[in-house]
Design a protein around this nucleic acid. Structure first.
Lengths: 196, 196
DNA sequence: ACCTTGACCTAACGTTCGTTAGGGCTCATG
DNA sequence: CATGAGCCCTAACGAACGTTAGGTCAAGGT
């Protein structure tokens, strides 16, 4: 069970922000402490290690993505790949726009995890990507999607989705809903059969 | 003029590989030297600073992308946005697959440049992205592309392209040509008007 | 009145960082 | 044979790193 005091939560949020902005390796414990107006050593009353901090953030983000896919799958029929993929994309965008910093760290900083955590995460990430891959495979099989390399198509869409936290700003011109709508539209369009 | 001895070139290549694999901040001068079977301090006979190393790699990558777009634009008519965009995507994929490590560093590690170099690069990157943006704008205007938010569409495609060096392996299942073909197909399809 | 708990402090540890200074070896060219 | 360029060495610098140890102080429960 993960214990989470309010103070620890605040520390995680500050760490997310700095890891997102400068990267994990370029962010020191003392950098994080400075934002909290605290001495670096004091952080160790709340945190086991720097990597523990990273893992907490990454694990929370991974869980959010997993919950989103689970819901998307529960809400759409197996035999409608178009709707299924739309729900998956929408769910992904919602998670990313709700927590851009966490998501960014999850996507970009996993290399700096310990080997144990890294392999744990790789498994979960593969499972996540499989949800997209399965929907696309099925769509190609049933003819709903054009026949192209499903592996490339999956990667194409997933990398486009993963790019969002790098540019999305919650207070920017684009609302989360608009981004979601457009990304669903673009993703489905990219795969859809021509209707000439 | 940039002077480039063969030895310096070898150093740049090693640095590209490590920066790509572990990130700039997590790669030390001594790490780079170790691959070359050399003492860390010896690198300073060839390199002014660690940032100089990063900038050389990034600058070379940026130039490669600029040359690719220039060629794509020269080879396609202004009034055919579909062909223009196809050429831009193809050129981008060719650069990325020819130099995945350099490209990866260019895309992911620009935050660690000095402010001078970072703003220099930001300008060039904006100019590069504008080439895509202009083709998409024109395509939406002429009706060749479906009417969606051109800013989002541009970002969607560019982030998908930028994701390539993270997964592409020169000795893998997919040849550079195949990736290029598929990415052109997916990009154009994502934007194309329905023909129902 | 005492004790725990949470939050933070200062001081210090051993290590690694980027970088500089100064010297030495090899080898092609004059 | 002398020269000089190219390449690398050892030694060391001050700074920053993650982390540990031990202590203070206020709030709250018993």
């Amino acid at each position: 069970m993960i214990e989470t005091t309010p103070r620890r939560r605040a520390i995680d949020d500050v760490a997310s922000g700095l890891f997102h902005a400068n990267g994990y390796a370029a962010t020191s414990i003392r950098d994080i402490a400075k934002v909290l107006d605290i001495q670096g050593a004091s952080l160790y009353a709340h945190v086991a290690s720097k990597e523990d901090l990273l893992w907490t953030i990454v694990d929370r983000a991974a869980t959010a993505f997993e919950e989103a896919t689970a819901q998307a799958i529960a809400e759409t029929p197996d035999n409608d790949p178009t709707e299924r993929l739309a729900a998956l994309v929408e769910g992904h965008v919602e998670v990313v726009t709700a927590h851009p910093e966490r998501s960014s760290v999850f996507i970009s900083e996993w290399r700096h995890l310990s080997e144990t955590h890294r392999t744990d995460l790789a498994i979960r990430r593969d499972a996540y990507e499989s949800r997209f891959r399965e929907a696309i495979d099925r769509g190609v099989d049933t003819g709903a999607f054009q026949a192209l390399d499903p592996a490339i198509a999956t990667t194409f869409i997933l990398t486009a989705l993963n790019g969002i936290p790098a540019w999305y700003r919650p207070d920017g011109r684009l609302t989360a809903d608009r981004v979601s709508d457009q990304y669903v539209e673009l993703s489905l369009h990219a795969l859809s059969e021509d209707h000439r």
